[in-house]
Amino acid sequence: MRTRIKICGITDPEDARQVAAAGIDAIGLVFHPASPRHVTADQAAAVINAVPPFISVVGLFLNPGADAVRDVLRRLPIDQLQFHGTESAAFCRQFGRRYVKALGMAGDVTELDARVAEHGDASGFLLDSHAPGEQGGTGRVFDWGSFPRDYPRPLVLAGGLRCDNVAAAVRQCRPFAVDVSSGVEREPGRKCPEQVSQFVSEVRRGEDD
């Protein structure tokens, strides 16, 4: 099965056009104010306007207020939501959009099934390198041996992925998708087109090995 690719932390319309041309499946817009990749609604609108058809736009939040999420959805055509904090399933589902729930894989990962079950209506789960309850986006790799292959729910691999390790990650984990941000940047929030293209090529190489 083809591995889907999401490039997160897009802040610039030209970056959106360039990563789309590389053959990715989704872009991520960060609405967490503490992030160096945070975008305002106006910035996000300019990015979305540069995205061609059939590429999904994902809005990323970390423990937001419900009104903040509703304001983004009222102003912007977001396709899916992605929650990276301690949000409950009831909180995530109230917006009437498909959502991905991020789960931290540092520390005790033995209760993954229980954590997945808590968000039974999520469209998928992003496994990242932070500890449960902590903020993601660390740029660190977690132990891929704890990534369950052939899992019954779609799993997205994140955390420290780069051009020089993503082929091995895909080969070992066989995730539904991979999610990268800092690993293809020239500075926080600005993507390097050459690295994005190489990243996509390496994902495909990992599928073929």
Rank of each mutant, 00 (worst) to 15 (best):
D128Y: 06
D179W: 06
F91G: 04
L62C: 11
F61W: 05
D15R: 01
I78V: 14
D179C: 04
L161V: 07
A26K: 00
I7M: 11
G159Y: 07
A22R: 03
T86K: 09
I27R: 01
G9Q: 10
A158Y: 06
V109N: 15
L126T: 05
P52E: 09
G104F: 15
P13N: 14
S88L: 09
E207N: 07
T40W: 10
N63L: 08
M1A: 13
P148L: 06
V72T: 06
F54C: 12
L62H: 10
V178I: 09
A106W: 05
Q82N: 11
K6F: 00
S146Q: 13
C8F: 02
E207F: 04
N49F: 07
E187N: 01
V156H: 07
R204A: 13
I7H: 05
K101W: 11
F61S: 04
Q172K: 06
F199V: 09
G96F: 07
D128A: 11
I48P: 03
G136P: 07
V19A: 02
A20E: 12
V47G: 06
C8A: 06
G59N: 01
G206I: 01
P52H: 13
V200I: 10
L29C: 02
F125Q: 01
G183M: 07
L161W: 12
L81K: 00
G160T: 05
R74G: 09
V47E: 07
F95L: 12
D121K: 02
G189D: 14
H38T: 14
I10F: 07
L62S: 06
